[in-house]
């Protein structure tokens, strides 16, 4: 069995499946729209961490360390 024998069948299979399952651009766009923007976990901690570092620095300076 070689690729030449199965390839036309596979292409035909893909075409038939796609004809019955195809999504419009609008429908695909809806899937993407409902998903909230991806926020990496570290971004949530960035500001509190910055505040902590600034506070620590100020305390260090004012306490004479």
């Amino acid at each position: 069995m070689n690729l030449d024998e199965l390839k036309p069948l596979w292409d035909s299979y893909k075409t038939q499946v796609n004809e019955q399952s195809e999504w419009s651009e609008e429908a695909i766009s809806q899937i993407v729209k409902v998903r909230p923007a991806f926020v990496p976990w570290y971004q949530k901690a960035q500001r509190p961490f910055l505040h902590f570092c600034v506070s620590f620095l100020l305390i260090s300076i004012t306490s004479g360390c």
Partner: peptide
């Protein structure tokens, strides 16, 4: 970016449908 992605998906969705099936 979203429009570009949607167009790309619309053109290549055949791959995903055949895989899912």
């Amino acid at each position: 970016l979203q429009e570009e992605f949607v167009k790309l998906m619309a053109n290549h969705q055949k791959l995903v449908h055949s895989l899912c099936s």
